Simulated assay, not measured.
Amino acid sequence: MSGTHRQYFGDLAADSHGTADDRPPLVLLHGLSYDRRQWGPVLEELAVVDPGRRVLAFDLPGHGDSPRRDSYDLGEVAAVVHRAVNDAGLDAPVMVGHSLGGALVTVYAAMYPVRGVVNVDQPLLVGGFGDVLRRAEPVLRSPAYGQVWTSLLAGMHIELLPPAARELVRTATTPRQDLLLGYWNEILVTPAEDLGERRTREMDVIRSSGVAYRHVSGDELPPAYRRWLESVLPDVAVTVLPGGGHFPHLSHPAEFAKILAG
């Protein structure tokens, strides 16, 4: 994407694209262990369908070129992102997040002004995933922690992605133990019911503020989860981009760019 400038806003490294105009700026947040490089295919397509759009793709704390923190509590990380957004001079951006980033942009939207939210393949209820993590916690805290990440990665269906995107997912990642334990700490220490109530309260705030919320997934949402999502956010828009597993934005970057441009 032409006009890219790598710089820091607040404490976060970012690729900065485009210039401010009457279009809402976009803020892109990657998933756990990845970095801002993952948005490359989407940004290339966005430059075609929405040229010159103001976009910031951040490295989350502890990822890429952004410094580590002692705590990766989502509320605290959202505050770090907000300081970076303010430093960049963005006013009420559209927040776009993949995987963990999808949870983070939801938390952010319940705390700070936004124009919209795009959650890419991140269920907000931990459900069975929380059970898996809690069972794996002894291994996560051991030198063999990488086995847990490898096991989870196998279920993300990277093999479905185009070759270049598959290589990007496999190489632009640093699954360090401190990141996994830090960002997943909320799931490890908080009962699933309490987490569900927390996410419901956040969605109540988003609904009451009239923020447009879109969930983009690589497969149809489980019926029970979709019922919950539509109950807490009746106007939610759900888009399925099939065939890319956990990475629908990389399987269908042109279609995803059109969603962002819209």
Score class of each variant (00 low, 15 high):
A136E: 13
H17A: 04
L181R: 09
T200K: 12
L46H: 00
P51A: 03
H17M: 10
G101V: 02
V216F: 04
W39V: 00
I259Q: 08
A13L: 08
H5G: 04
V117C: 02
L233A: 05
E167W: 12
G243Q: 04
E255C: 05
T106F: 05
T19F: 07
P162W: 10
S251T: 10
S251N: 13
A88W: 00
N119D: 12
A57V: 04
P113H: 06
G18T: 02
G210H: 07
V238N: 05
N119M: 11
V238D: 07
A212W: 09
W184T: 05
R201P: 05
D73W: 11
R36V: 01
T19I: 10
G64V: 03
S251D: 12
H17T: 02
I206A: 02
L241R: 05
L160N: 11
D65M: 10
T106K: 05
G97Q: 03
R68G: 11
P138F: 01
P248F: 03
V132D: 12
L133R: 09
A237V: 15
H252E: 08
G3M: 11
V232F: 08
R69Q: 14
V139G: 03
D91Q: 13
L26N: 02
R36C: 03
K258I: 10
E197N: 14
E193A: 15
G128K: 14
L180C: 05
V216E: 01
P93Y: 02
D219Y: 08
A13N: 12
A257G: 03
T106H: 06
F129W: 14
L104R: 01
S209H: 14
E255Y: 03
E137M: 06
R227C: 06
E197V: 13
V216W: 04
V117M: 07
G218R: 08
R23S: 02
R83P: 01
D11R: 15
L74P: 00
Q122N: 13
Y183M: 10
D219R: 15
A78G: 04
L195V: 05
R170V: 02
A257P: 04
Y72V: 06
R134S: 07
I158Q: 08
W149R: 09
Y145H: 13
S99M: 05
L195P: 00
L56W: 03
S16L: 14
L229F: 05
P222C: 09
L56Y: 02
L140T: 00
H63T: 07
A224W: 11
D87A: 15
R134L: 09
R115S: 15
Y34C: 12
S66N: 06
P41Q: 11
D65P: 00
D21K: 10
A57L: 03
A224S: 13
L104H: 00
V55Y: 04
D65L: 13
V118S: 00
F247C: 02
P163S: 06
P123H: 11
V189K: 09
I259F: 03
G102S: 07
G146T: 11
A13C: 13
A57S: 07
G116L: 06
G155E: 02
R68E: 15
L100V: 10
G89S: 07
W228V: 00
R23I: 03
T150R: 14
V205W: 08
R6S: 13
S151Q: 11
S142Q: 11
A136W: 09
A78W: 01
R54I: 02
D178T: 09
V94N: 05
Q7V: 11
V107H: 02
E45N: 12
F256G: 00
L12V: 04
G210C: 09
